[in-house]
C-alpha cells in the first residue's frame, strides 16, 4: 500500500520541519527527490487524510487551557449515535468517542472537555448532561503528564 519512497517521506514528515527558508527542499534533498515532488506528496497525503493535520503540535498546558477533563458517560447502547452527535456539537468538546465497557467500567462514551478552570469544565459537563439526558457520568482530571510524544511510524523496518 505504501511504497518505500512513501515510507521514507513519512519518516521525515514525522520529525520536526527545519526552520529555514526552504524546509521542504532540505527534506527533498535528503531523500533524493525534487522539492516539487515532495510538496505534491505532502499535499496528496493531506488530501487523502493520511496526514490528519500538517502544522504545529502544541503543548496545551503551556498555552492557557489549564483544565481539561476526560468526561466519561454511561449512554444506553441504542442511543450512542444520537447522543454522540449532540456531544460533538459542543465547541468545548474536542474529542468524542464511543469505547467498550468492562465489568467495573460502565462508561462507553468519552469526551474531552476543555476550559480555563475546573468549574468551567464542570459547567460544560452539566450542560451536556442536561441536553442529552445522560445523568450517569464522571469527570477525570489529569493531575500529571507522564509522557507526550509523536508516534514514529515505519521505524521497525
Amino acid at each position: 500500500m505504501f511504497t518505500e519512497l512513501d515510507k521514507q517521506i513519512i519518516r521525515e514528515l514525522q520529525e520536526d520541519l527545519p526552520l529555514t527558508s526552504r524546509p521542504y527542499k532540505v527534506i527533498a534533498d535528503k531523500i533524493g527527490i525534487t522539492e516539487e515532488e515532495l510538496l505534491a506528496k505532502v499535499q496528496e497525503f493531506v488530501d487523502k487524510g493520511i496526514i490528519r493535520r500538517f502544522g504545529a503540535a502544541l503543548r496545551h498546558r503551556e498555552v492557557g487551557f489549564t483544565a481539561n477533563a476526560m468526561v466519561v458517560w454511561d449512554v444506553p447502547d441504542e442511543k450512542t449515535r444520537e447522543v454522540g452527535a449532540i456531544m460533538a456539537g459542543f465547541p468545548e468538546v474536542s474529542h468524542c468517542y464511543q469505547r467498550p465497557r468492562y465489568p467495573g467500567w460502565p462508561y462507553n462514551m468519552f469526551t474531552m472537555v476543555h476550559g480555563l478552570s475546573k468549574e468551567e469544565c464542570e459547567a460544560t459537563a452539566a450542560r451536556i448532561a442536561e441536553r442529552t439526558g445522560i445523568k450517569k457520568y464522571d469527570l477525570l482530571y489529569s493531575t500529571a503528564e507522564l509522557k507526550k510524544d509523536s508516534m514514529k511510524y515505519f521505524m521497525e523496518e
Binding site: I10, L17, L19, R52, A57, L58, R59
Partner: peptide, 26 residues
C-alpha cells in the same frame, strides 16, 4: 522564523510537521 524558534525553545511548540492518521497508515 525567530518567533517560531523562540516558541520551540519555550516548549510551547512541540513539533512542526505531519500528524498522521495511524489507522490510514495501517
Amino acid at each position: 522564523i525567530s518567533r517560531l524558534q523562540k516558541l520551540k525553545e519555550e516548549g510551547i511548540i512541540r513539533r512542526i510537521g505531519g500528524i498522521f492518521d495511524s489507522q490510514k497508515l495501517g
